[in-house]
């Protein structure tokens, strides 16, 4: 036993990589899934969106790049489907240059496929990317069309029906920011939601989630933290609107490999600690 634990202590790290890879690949191929229960912090976002009257204005930002698509894309797709199902007016935009392809992907995968009857410029608009980080939010706070003069297709936003009555951020009913860093949810709270008194909901990568919990519940309506948060929103959406079951379960399906990989990591942590404390290393350090 002691020899085994000693060997564990000196294990080649590449074996751990292989174990983690297998822990992800096998459940992925086998299609392993687990039940997902929506927690109040995610349910709040769902309930808010669900309670907004038809025609309410929602800013939906894709402040993330391709590197975090597996976490962020299921969130934004589920929120967009929900908002369009409720016939809300959706204003898509990004403060990340790498967010442009994500908005294009939303147009192709959600708007064109699930809601082909919705008219661009009337029911939804893609305002594209603007450089300037929180400066753009600051500018849109008092002059929204000034900050986004044209949409992603080059149309003057002042001529679009969806922009009627939109002058500043305070004219919106909800801001949903799906982000993976700076600028992101924090900046939308600081420069958009807080000063304009517009509720802000967030969806962020798991790395960023612990930094944003302090804003909940007064400054942040709710928060989707990582893939688990996305899966919880999808579960709430599918529970209320089962017609999205086949299209909006991306995160739920990815939580299978996630769970197995976590179990493997926990096993390695336990094994590593046992090997450390029972092996010679611990005694050597104490003496």
């Amino acid at each position: 036993m002691s020899a085994f634990l000693d060997r564990v202590g000196r294990m080649d790290r590449r074996l751990i990589y292989v174990a983690i890879a297998l822990a992800v690949i096998i459940p992925l191929v086998a299609g392993l899934t687990f039940p997902v229960i929506t927690t109040p912090i995610v349910q709040n976002i769902f309930d808010k969106l669900d309670s907004l009257p038809e025609g309410s204005r929602v800013i939906l930002t894709a402040d993330f790049g391709p590197s975090t698509v597996p976490e962020n894309m299921p969130m934004i797709q589920a929120v967009l489907r929900h908002a369009l199902h409720k016939k809300l007016k959706v204003y898509l935009l990004t403060l990340w240059a790498t967010g442009i392809p994500q908005l294009d992907a939303l147009e192709q995968n959600v708007l064109a496929k699930d809601f082909p009857d919705r008219v661009a410029g009337q029911d939804w608009v893609n305002l594209g990317y603007k450089a300037g980080n929180q400066g753009v939010i600051n500018s849109a706070f008092s002059d929204f069309p000034g900050a986004f003069p044209v949409d992603s297709k080059g149309h003057d936003v002042r001529t679009l029906p969806i922009m009627e009555g939109v002058k500043r951020i305070a004219d919106f009913n909800l801001i949903v920011c799906i982000a993976s860093g700076f600028p992101g949810v924090k900046e939308w709270i600081q420069f958009g939601g807080d000063p304009a008194h517009v509720p802000v909901a967030g969806g962020v990568t798991a790395v960023e989630a612990p930094l944003l919990y302090p804003y909940y519940p007064r400054q942040l309506l709710g928060l989707m933290g990582g893939l688990q948060g996305a899966a919880e929103y999808e579960a709430a959406l599918v529970k209320q609107y089962p017609e999205y079951a086949s299209r909006s379960e991306e995160a739920i399906q990815r939580m299978g490999p996630q769970t197995v990989a976590h179990l493997v990591i926990i096993a390695f942590i336990v094994l590593g600690n046992v090997a450390f404390f029972t092996g010679g290393e611990w005694r050597r350090r104490r003496t």
Binding site: V24, V69, E71, G226, R254, Q258
Partner: peptide, 26 residues
């Protein structure tokens, strides 16, 4: 405890990205 929670979340994030890449390779 807060550092531990942050570490747990970081692990979750990295595994999510790995899952995304594995899906792509598949």
């Amino acid at each position: 405890i807060s550092f531990g929670a942050a570490f747990g979340y970081t692990v979750m994030a990295r595994i999510s990205l790995l899952t995304g890449r594995m899906e792509f390779l598949r």
